[in-house]
Amino acid sequence: MPHPSAIRLGLNVDHVATLRNARGGARPDPVRIALAAIAAGADGITAHLREDRRHIRDTDMARLKAEIPKPLNFEMAATPDMIRIALETKPHAVCLVPERREELTTEGGLDVVGQRDSLAPSIARFGDAGIRVSLFIAADAQQIEMAAQLRAPAIEIHTGGWCDAVVDGHTEKADAEWRRIVEGVALAKSAGLEVHAGHGLDYATAETIAALPEIVELNIGYFMMGEALLVGIAETVRTMRAAMDRGRATLKTRMA
């Protein structure tokens, strides 16, 4: 078993493709950024292939799978077309997310309770293909319990509400959202789920959440791409890795 202090950093490269697509052509290249991030210490790469292909494209997913030496996490809506592409691509993992064409970014967690009947066969198909499934959900007891009932190996807790409240200085809301996360990840761990987290994380919030022993993976993209414009992707990855390690060090202190 991994040491309880182990925590992985997954870099989401969607917005490298957003910048590329604003002008057309091939640059900046998401695969090149992914390789540089891995060289600097990222443990894996996440990319969301949306129905409207607003950033990542099919060829990006194929190249990421073929060219990166670390796990690829294929973020996707559970539609027949995306399921087909993911099964053909054979990434290390898929993360099933809700998706609305008009949204700017993923706005909330997947309704696993309401979509149980449609999600169950998809989770089973990916499992049969040897692809790890995670469900992107809110830190809600009903959603977490349903994820466990559906035998999804992992969940990713949506941290956007907490991160937004922290950044906006809404202390009471941030505290309430944080309590939900703490309770949710404990419940998920007790239910046998591998627990990831992501959405809206920056250096400070990543350091804070890395102190939760149940969480083994953080997936971060937009903030890190913005930082990379200033200092480069390698320095951004190293700084994020250091922030996560500082958070995890508090866990080691508590266990000592």
Rank of each mutant, 00 (worst) to 15 (best):
A165Y: 02
R132S: 11
D128Q: 14
E172W: 13
A174T: 10
G130H: 09
A138Q: 13
G169H: 14
I155V: 13
R180E: 07
V167R: 15
D128V: 09
W162C: 03
V182R: 08
E177C: 08
A147T: 05
L150F: 12
R132C: 05
I144F: 02
V167C: 05
V167S: 14
F126Q: 00
I157A: 04
G161H: 05
I155Q: 02
E172L: 01
A138H: 14
D140R: 14
D164T: 15
G130A: 04
L135D: 03
A138T: 10
A154E: 15
G161P: 01
D168R: 15
A176P: 03
V166Q: 06
T159G: 03
D168C: 15
F126M: 08
D128T: 13
H170S: 01
H170T: 12
Q143H: 13
I155C: 01
T171A: 04
A141M: 04
R132Q: 05
G169N: 09
A176D: 05
A165L: 02
G160F: 01
A129I: 13
F136P: 00
V133C: 00
A129S: 13
D168M: 15
C163W: 03
I181P: 07
G161Y: 01
I181T: 09
R132D: 10
I181E: 03
M146Y: 02
T171E: 02
H158P: 00
G130M: 01
A139Q: 11
A147Y: 04
V182S: 01
